[in-house]
Design a protein around this nucleic acid. Structure first.
Lengths: 134, 134
DNA sequence: CTAAATGCAAAACCTTTGCCTCAAA
DNA sequence: TTTGAGGCAAAGGTTTTGCATTTAG
């Protein structure tokens, strides 16, 4: 089931071969690849894809709400499939990115924004932690 | 009172003229200037300062815990005086950055990390909101 | 067939670095 | 006086863009 593909069609995107491939790569990625990594994975499926297209396409998909950009503070954009909102915990020793969800936290954010007179449109939370040894 | 200056001395930093000026600029800034802006403000006090020094010095101050880096996702580092931890709400219509604090939220973050077996070392939260018209 | 997308290479940004000179302690 | 800091310009890394060519609809 090409879930993301349907979504692209629905919002009226022209589905070229490079776009299909990049979409496929993202859909098949369980991690949070940066553009260079997406490019490497895409090139394996079609040698002719250029990195400029990966940049243009990720930007396009992001603006269309198909994928989401993640910034862990290392100067490169990372991407993941858009879905239910979740947060990221970054293991500062290994760089591993762990996803989690917490509705209570979400609600509190909405409340805090509201209290300041704002409607929460987007929000990002990154926790940086060290594994507790037991 | 040169609060930050004392802090620098305490951690053993050599206080050169450029460092004093950059520190002063940050201390006098109520906003969240990026490096280029800090550079512009510093140059007004001493024409000979170079942008390389601003980069080197902000990095130094950050590592020493004198100032804090803020990343609002626009590809440039912004800085502010280090102090009690606070979060940022970004007005998506004006770009204005509003600071806020919420101990309940802090505690919840610690709890969430702990539940996943991590000790919270650092954390970043940015809320993006639209002003509610009344 | 036509407007939009791609590839390529160059440019634009932000940030870091090498090297020689200068200054703080 | 000595070691670290600063200025300058060049280099690095990521992302964007101009332009000629190709392709989806």
């Amino acid at each position: 089931m090409a879930k993301l593909y349907e979504k692209c069609i629905k919002v009226g995107l022209r589905m070229t071969l490079p776009r299909k491939i990049i979409l496929e790569v993202i859909e098949d990625s369980a991690d949070h690849p940066d553009v260079d990594e997406l490019y490497r994975r895409a090139v394996e499926k079609d040698r002719s894809i250029s990195i400029a297209t990966v940049y243009r396409t990720t930007k396009l998909f992001e603006e269309a709400g198909i994928i989401e950009r993640l910034d862990i503070g290392d100067g490169r954009a990372r991407y993941e499939e858009a879905g239910e909102h979740h947060e990221h915990l970054i293991d500062i020793e290994t760089g591993e990115i762990i996803e989690f969800q917490n509705e209570e936290l979400e609600e509190m954010k909405r409340q805090v924004a509201k209290k300041m007179g704002y409607e929460l449109v987007d929000h990002r939370l990154e926790l940086f932690g060290k594994k507790i040894k037991s």
